[in-house]
Design a binder for these strands. Structure first.
Lengths: 245, 245
DNA sequence: TTAGCTCAGTGAACGCCGTTTACTATTACA
DNA sequence: TGTAATAGTAAACGGCGTTCACTGAGCTAA
């Protein structure tokens, strides 16, 4: 293996130049604006040359999506690392980092999480293993939840219900993240979909009919979300009934 | 106004034929497959003729999305009507109907709720009034929630928190749905994003790394979701702590 | 050192696409 | 019945992804 040869160096440089161009087009004009001809133009090349590096436009978009997934995961993990040792603080920091990145990069978010454009459909249907971007992202969120559960079990639906209804469906999750209590698996999925729903609606403007500034709604929801992880039996400060009570 | 003239009848017929063709292409080939030329071909026309009915492809897609929004809303409202008088039953039926339609029509769901393709970005940025499809959809969900609140206030974050952080942001919601308690507004938004997140991840295959059959997760989440509307102070049967407790 | 092979890149072409323009036939109405 | 609005056409422009035949440079082994 040793050092990469000159040609290999040039090749990887060109690959990243292509992906950089694709991302620039993505950011300025949306997913549809990514075109081989435009990328090649920006690079001073002709379009067919790109076929030496990617078998199709779809494959290029797929590779770009994979990079974005990893970028987001690194951001989230960095936020967690900077949040100290308390898993609940880590979860809060990760959630805020997730929202922050998504709001700051709406088009990238749309490419990763949005409508499966035909390209993305194939991307999502790829074989699931521990390297699947979705799985790695899930794993990042799993760690603090698992630690919280270890320290003090939190409130979940009863175990027998989860065992009966959910346990058989978790094979993909277990294959990538290993064995884990069904309550933790449920809570991670439940929390992740809740977080995703909120951020996704904000990013794609699907809340504009209701609120002017979704950040406020996010913060309130976040406290409710984190409360899901409070030790069972101690309802937190935000779950009291209305004042009419 | 009286009867529509012959030309007007022909015109509306052609408009629906165009939209039907667009939807057929949408279903078979995804949002990208909608093309004026293909629609015109299927109709035995030439592409420029469609410009007599829609100013651009984007406008056609927008109109189609509006129709789909209404179709989904009608389905959800029908489910509510068939669910009897209990608002909680209505909410459950609406949620299941929402998921059912979405799973059965993944591409339509993607067009409405997914990545804002450029066309959809404009669609979402349209002026918000009581006729905005998103607002009408929100209104459908609001009705049972408001009724539940009227009968017995449910558990929410404390009113002063909502007043302080959220009340100022609700102008669009109030403009379309009228005045309503801030707790109800919060709960509708929170519940809707939660429901949306779950269904959206299932439909767009973003849960395939975790579960094989998302329906089970949905049902469990639904019971948790409906519990949000239980009268304050009576935690329902599914919210007990883990058995280790 | 040189012959041969691999590989990056080109130019032309094919068949799509949205959209515009000029033009024709039909319908509605004064 | 004449005239204006309407629905449709054909042709063209520029852009797109992709394929194919071809060139030239870099690498490797005799």
């Amino acid at each position: 293996m040793s050092l990469p040869t000159r040609r290999e160096r040039l090749r990887t440089a060109t690959v990243s130049e292509i992906k950089d161009g694709a991302r620039r087009l993505l950011v300025t004009g949306g997913p549809q604006a990514i075109s081989l001809r435009a990328i090649a133009r920006d690079m001073g090349m002709t379009a067919p040359a790109i076929y030496r590096y990617f078998p199709s436009l779809e494959a290029l978009v797929r590779a770009l999506a994979g990079d974005l997934y990893d970028e987001l995961r690194r951001v989230v993990e960095a936020a967690s690392a900077a949040a100290g040792d308390d898993p609940l603080d880590q979860l809060a920091a990760m959630s805020r980092a997730f929202r922050h990145w998504s709001v700051a990069h709406p088009v990238e978010f749309a490419l990763i999480f949005g409508t499966p454009v035909p390209s993305m459909a194939a991307f999502l249907a790829e074989e699931i293993d521990e390297n699947h971007p979705g799985a790695r992202f899930g794993a990042a969120f799993l760690r603090p939840v698992l630690e919280l559960w270890r320290r003090a079990p939190f409130r979940t639906p009863p175990r027998e219900l989860l065992e009966r209804r959910l346990a058989g469906q978790l094979e993909p999750l277990r294959r990538t993240l290993g064995e884990l209590p069904v309550e933790v698996a449920y809570t991670v999925l439940s929390g992740w979909t809740r977080l995703y729903g909120l951020v996704s609606m904000e990013v794609s403007n699907h809340l504009c009919w209701a609120v002017t500034e979704p950040a406020a709604l996010f913060e309130i929801e976040l406290t409710g979300f984190l409360q899901q992880f409070a030790p069972a039996g101690e309802p937190g400060p935000t779950s009291g009934g209305p004042e009419a009570d």
